[in-house]
């Protein structure tokens, strides 16, 4: 459909007004919210993600596109709820206790939403108990932890322990990210995955929710 391809292109240009208008036009033309979401917005963000991975575009442009995607989502959201369209999965994210750095966590949240996941953002300075309670309450499949300080990295291990002690280890997976952490650290604390950057975090979350 031409309108869907137009949405994808407009999204890539980061034109939020344009995406909002085109989303309305697509719905008025009879397309379902689900189709506009999957083949317009999510596919558009997928193309953005590919260009980012290939270094054709950089983060500021990805974020402009994300804002445009949100503009389209605002139009679709009420209809999606009515159509009973499920998200790809639910992810609870936050910056761990003692750490106030938000930017990396925000970027991951934006990219996850762009990929079609429902994101529950607990903000920063989040205790292990709050992560686990939110995951249980929201029936989230993944907890995403962010830290920018070597001094707050150990809190990630405490979240993993809290997930286990609550008996959620099979149903709730933990992914970690942030400047001081690594794949090796993730293994060391028993986390299920590690995201090097926002784009790879999305891929890893997708894999976690698909299962082995």
């Amino acid at each position: 459909m031409e309108i869907l391809s137009h949405i994808r292109e407009t999204l890539l240009q980061g034109d939020d007004d344009g995406v909002r208008d085109l989303t309305r036009t697509a719905l008025a033309a009879g397309l379902t919210a689900r189709t506009v979401l999957d083949e317009g917005l999510v596919a558009g963000m997928g193309a953005v993600g590919e260009k980012f991975k290939c270094h054709d575009i950089f983060l500021p442009e990805v974020l402009l596109a994300a804002r445009a995607m949100y503009a389209g989502m605002d139009v679709l959201q009420p209809l999606l709820a009515g159509e009973g369209v499920p998200a790809l999965g639910k992810v609870v994210i936050g910056t761990v206790q003692g750490d106030l750095h938000d930017i990396g966590k925000n970027l991951v949240g934006i990219m996850l939403k762009g990929a079609g996941f429902e994101v529950i953002d607990l903000g920063h300075d989040v205790s292990p108990e709050k992560f686990v309670e939110a995951a249980e309450r929201e029936r989230a499949g993944v907890i995403g932890l962010s830290a920018l300080l070597t001094t707050t990295m150990p809190v990630m291990g405490k979240v993993v322990e809290a997930v286990r002690s609550r008996g959620l280890a099979g149903s709730v997976r933990v992914i970690i990210g942030g400047a001081p952490v690594s794949e090796q650290f993730a293994r060391q604390i028993g986390a299920d995955s590690y995201g090097y950057d926002a784009a790879s975090a999305v891929e890893r979350v997708r894999a976690l929710l698909k299962g082995p």
């Binding site: 980061g14 983060l59 500021p60 442009e61 974020l63 402009l64 994300a66 804002r67 949100y70 938000d102 930017i103 925000n106 970027l107 934006i110």
Partner: peptide, 18 residues
């Protein structure tokens, strides 16, 4: 202001200002 920009979905400007 950086936090406010992210909250109001001005992600790119928030990122550059940060």
């Amino acid at each position: 202001e950086i936090a406010r920009l992210f909250e109001s979905r001005d992600f790119a400007l928030g990122y550059v200002l940060d």
